[in-house]
Amino acid sequence: MVATSDGGHWVQMRRILPAFAGFELVCVGTEPRADPDLGPVRYYPVRNVSRANAHALPVLVWQLARAIRRERPDAVVTTGAGPGLIALALARHLAGSRTVWIDSIANTERMSLSGRMAGWVADAWLVQWEHLARPEGPHYWGAVL
């Protein structure tokens, strides 16, 4: 399962999708419809919640929990932002999934707030800049560019 917000988060995830070739892929996103380039894929639209509209958080949690219970993903991968972080936390507790956080390449000097929180719920906690990596995590495995 990939669970990623639209805009730059999704544009970065698109560049990672070849890593999942041959796997059964399910997508969770904040756009009403799936990216047409994905072709036929199960897609779960969710509310885009940030600090500006945190009141919609219960709706988002319910939508994500429903998708995760139905799909029971082996792994969940996100490039952010907030909804991806919550998806990792829920998948870990509801389905025992492997979880991967890939912080945005836009964060060249420090991780985003959700990226720092992801350290608690990501089995692979990744940044896209080598100088931001630490021995105890986050780690650097490469970048989308």
């Binding site: 070849p18 890593a19 796997f23 492997r98 989308v144």
Partner: peptide
């Protein structure tokens, strides 16, 4: 259109591993 292959390979290998819990 794609990230460098070494990065993709590393993510793929991790995702294909067993559930940790």
């Amino acid at each position: 259109a794609h990230a460098p292959q070494a990065f993709l390979d590393r993510i793929r290998a991790f995702v294909a591993g067993p559930r940790p819990r």
